[in-house]
Amino acid sequence: MPFITTDDGTEIFYKDWGNKDAQPIIFSHGWPLSSDAWDVEMKLAADNGFRAIAHDRRGHGRSTQTYFGNDMDTYAADLDALVRALDLRDIILVGHSTGGGEVVRFAATHGVGRVVKIATAGAVPPIMVKSESNPEGTPIEAFDGIRAGVLADRSQFFKDLSEPFFGTNRPGSTISQGQRDQFWRLGMQAGFAAVYDCVKQFSETDFTADLQKLDVPIFIAQGDDDQIVPPAAASEKAIKLVKNGTLKLYPGGPHGIAGAYQQELDKDLLEFWKS
């Protein structure tokens, strides 16, 4: 299996599909998942002539189960290490949820001159936690509850979380038990410390300045029934901060990329990649 090793000795696993001479698309996964969450989109990219790359964030999937460095700046630095190791240029970035924050931070701090397009789906920027300046956000007590659930019974917590994640608590949901089981499986592969520490990173990191720095085309996608990342505090604010952005809200779409939402999103992603 391919790995790169960062300056602090962390091994980052990555997948690399398609033509190695083609334009690269890098996929960044959400919490608490791994690069496997992007398999459908990676195949779509590779089948359409792109080089599809996805990594397991440190502490997740097959990467080192780190105790230190589980923070957004280090996540972005790890991605930079991968980009430099593979000498990637003309990069298209795609990030879901926490991964949306990661690619935005990477593009703003490391990607100038290398990144040409960005797409996010259900992404956490600009900031999730509720405050006086972000009244549409989610109260800190909700994130404290996530941490408590992880500490008390991570396995059952992930099983329960898969319901709002994919919107299976909504009438007419067609998301299978298999999809929910895959969420649980990928979550349980992650290191315990990383799972816990990442909650603070996806909820309290302020990406406002990062979004304002971006001048490449950015496609901001989100299900309008996202029960994990409220659109009013995320995509609907992010679009106002970027210079060259397009926002699309998908009616009835959940947070997890699956079902009819995935099918429509993938069509739009392919069109954006080729544009």
Rank of each mutant, 00 (worst) to 15 (best):
P2S: 07
T6I: 09
T6P: 02
D7V: 08
D8K: 03
G9C: 14
T10W: 06
E11W: 00
N19T: 09
I25F: 07
F27G: 10
P32F: 05
S34T: 02
D36F: 08
A37M: 15
A37Q: 11
A45H: 05
R58P: 11
S63N: 13
N70T: 12
M72G: 02
T74E: 09
D80W: 02
A81H: 12
R84D: 15
R84G: 11
L86F: 13
L88D: 01
D90L: 05
I91E: 01
V94F: 13
E102C: 05
V104G: 06
R105E: 07
H110T: 07
V112I: 14
V112M: 12
V115K: 03
V115L: 10
I118N: 11
A123V: 04
P126D: 08
E132R: 03
E132V: 06
S133E: 14
S133R: 13
T138H: 09
I140T: 03
D144Y: 09
A152F: 13
S155R: 15
F157G: 02
D160R: 08
P164K: 08
G167D: 07
P171K: 10
Q177C: 06
Q179S: 14
R180T: 02
Q182E: 10
G187M: 04
Q189R: 13
V195N: 07
Y196T: 00
F202K: 00
D206M: 07
F207E: 04
D210S: 07
L211V: 02
K213C: 12
D215A: 10
V216L: 08
F219E: 01
A221F: 10
Q222M: 15
G223N: 10
I228H: 00
A233M: 06
V242D: 05
Y250I: 10
G253K: 00
G253M: 05
P254E: 12
G256C: 05
G256T: 11
E264M: 15
D266T: 09
K267I: 12
F272K: 01
